[in-house]
Simulated scan of single mutants.
Amino acid sequence: MSVRTHLLGACGALALLAAPALAADPAPSAPQPPLQSRTAPAADWISLTGTVAAIDGNRLTLATGEGSIEVGLRGLAAADAGRMQPGDRIGVTGRMDSNVFERRRIAAESIYVARLNRLLGADDWVIVTGRVVAKTGDDFTLESGDQRLEVDADDDAGAADVRALEVGDRVSVTGELDEAGLYSRREIDATSVIVLTPPPGAS
Rank of each mutant, 00 (worst) to 15 (best):
A24E: 15
R59H: 15
D25A: 10
D152N: 15
G91H: 10
L177I: 07
L177E: 06
D161L: 13
T5M: 10
R103A: 14
V171P: 02
T61S: 11
A10P: 03
V195C: 00
V171M: 04
G137D: 04
S172T: 01
C11D: 09
R115Q: 13
V173T: 08
P31K: 09
I46A: 02
R89M: 09
R38F: 06
E66H: 04
G137Q: 03
R148W: 09
D80C: 06
V3F: 06
S98F: 11
G82N: 09
A24Q: 13
E176C: 00
R115L: 06
Y112Q: 04
G57L: 06
T39P: 01
Y183N: 08
N117I: 02
P198G: 07
A79H: 02
A190W: 00
R83A: 15
S47K: 00
Q85I: 08
P28E: 09
G121E: 08
G50E: 02
A21Q: 09
L48P: 05
S172Y: 06
G130D: 05
V133E: 02
S172Q: 01
G94T: 02
R118Y: 02
G181F: 11
R131H: 00
E102A: 14
V71P: 01
M84W: 05
V195K: 00
R95M: 07
I55P: 06
T49A: 06
D56M: 09
F140E: 01
A107E: 14
L16H: 12
A23M: 15
M96D: 07
P41F: 03
A42Y: 06
A164T: 13
L116Y: 04
L116F: 10
A18S: 12
A153F: 04
A13W: 04
R163T: 14
D152E: 15
E179K: 09
V195F: 02
V193Q: 07
L142Y: 00
G87H: 01
A180Y: 09
W45G: 01
T39D: 10
R131A: 07
P86M: 02
V133A: 00
V171S: 03
D44F: 05
A160S: 12
A18P: 01
G121S: 06
D178T: 07
D97M: 10
F140P: 11
T174G: 13
L16S: 11
E187V: 15
D97I: 07
R186M: 12
G72Q: 04
L8F: 06
M84D: 11
L16R: 00
R4D: 15
